[in-house]
Each structure stands twice: as structure tokens, then as C-alpha cells.
Design a binder for these strands. Structure first.
Lengths: 118, 118
DNA sequence: GGGTAGTACTACGTCTTGTAGAGAGGTGAG
DNA sequence: CTCACCTCTCTACAAGACGTAGTACTACCC
């Protein structure tokens, strides 16, 4: 799936945070801290949609962009991808399980047991 | 932590598979399929150790390289890193739990319950 | 002492990412 | 109508990562 650059991720974060599709201009306004040229934002949005992270729909002349998948889905997919990289998935999973902190272990446990019940 | 390139990963795979520290020459011999110049292998090994993925010790004039961490540890770290990227770790974890296949869910479950017992 | 192996340093092409300008075409204000 | 402006698309460029490798120097074996 490939990772995102820093600016790309900032922009994805904005789009993930807002729940409505935004135009390039709106995204640009939300970045503030960095003083980016409007075309910079447009370029990055364009690249992101080309890479499949965003979908876009017309709104007059402008495009409105929105994430193709939720951040959770993206994160989960990254995790699975990391997992695919190992020859010994079980060992990696075990190690991962041991590494997550207590409260998160419980979340995981809960999700897993709910799965079993279904 | 940053990811690895394709050749870098092939080489890490070799070093993870063999359990002994290898010299550049030995690694090169194990790649076969690609017809790489010896210096290519050396360069990549050098970069990998510079990035902290490998440690090396002298053996005569040659260096012997070995992974700084196990593959499992690397994979688990990648997974945790992905997890850190989200604002809502719980949601991502839940989604992840639902995404792992049955047998793997059991591995996870087992590791987690063992944790609790300790 | 010449071939061989090994090192360090340097290099170059390609791809990705951050960053942005140029030019085209529509649109509202006056 | 005309001008200023918005937004788009296209193109560009610098920096860094990676794959790939040559060169030059050293040390060892026979």
C-alpha cells in the first residue's frame, strides 16, 4: 500500500478529522501553520487521490475530496501489511500481543472474544 | 523507524533466516537470483547497519553482519508504529482484531490471556 | 609479488515527496 | 463587456532514498 509523506499525512489527518468532503481551498485554510501555496495543496490532494487514498467529486469547478477509507481501516491495513512481511506470523503476533499496553490488550481481547461469539 | 527498500528487505530476510552473522560475500552468494556486484551487496549492508538494522563485527578484514533485532520484533514494531498513527487506537485495534483470520485470532488470544495470567 | 578479497568512498539514475509557478477557462462585479 | 479572481491541469525542480556499481587502496595467500 505504501506509506505517506509528512505533508500527505497532515492532509489526510485533516480530511479524516472533518467528516465532510473538502475542497483544496478549505484544506489549505485548515493547515494554517504551514504557509503553503494553494497549488501545493492541490497537488498533494491530487496525488493522494491518484494513489487511492482519496476520492473526489465535482462541486462546481472545484473538487471535493474525502478519504477513501477510514483512518482505522488504513491503520489496520498497515498493521496487516507489516504482519505479512514476516515468515512466522504467529511469532510476530505473539510479540505484538506482549507489546501492547494493558488497556489496549483488553480492547484487543474484547474484540477477539466478541468475534468468537459470533 | 522507516521502511526498507526491496533489496534491503531481501538482504534482511537472508540475515534473519541464517542465524549466524554473515559477511557481504556470503550474503551475495545467497542472493543468486539477482546478479549483483559484490560492492552492491556491501553498500546495502553498510546502509542497513548505518540505519541500525544490522550490527557488524570484525572478522579479519571482513565485517560480519547480523540483524540488530529479530524479524518478529521488527514486525511488531512496525505494527505498533502504524497504531501510533491513529488518534483512536482502540478503534484501530478493534478493526485489526476483526481483520485477522481465525487461527491467528487464536494465537493473539492465547498470547493475551497468557499475559493476563502472569 | 601478483591475484584475490575486502574496505571505504564516490557516483549516478530513478522514484517519491514537498513545494510551487504558468497557463487555461469559467464567473462575478462594476 | 471587461477585468480580477478562482480553480484546474501541467510542468518543474530540489532533496532524499534506493538500487546499482566503479575505483582506489590495503592486506593476505601461495
Amino acid at each position: 500500500m505504501k506509506g505517506l509523506g509528512e505533508l500527505e499525512r497532515s492532509i489526510m489527518d485533516i480530511l479524516w478529522a472533518e467528516n465532510v468532503p473538502l475542497t483544496a481551498r478549505e484544506v489549505g485554510r485548515l493547515i494554517e501553520d504551514r504557509d503553503l501555496a494553494p497549488t501545493t495543496v492541490m497537488t498533494v490532494l491530487d496525488r493522494l487521490s491518484r494513489k487511492g487514498f482519496l476520492t473526489r467529486t465535482r462541486d462546481g469547478r472545484a473538487w471535493r475530496y474525502q478519504p477513501a477509507a477510514s483512518r482505522d481501516a488504513y491503520v489496520a491495513e498497515l498493521m496487516l501489511e507489516a504482519l505479512d512481511m514476516t515468515g512466522d506470523r504467529d511469532a510476530a503476533l505473539t510479540r505484538f500481543a506482549r507489546a501492547v499496553s494493558g488497556s489496549e490488550a483488553e480492547i484487543l481481547l474484547k474484540a477477539l472474544t466478541e468475534l468468537e461469539e459470533e
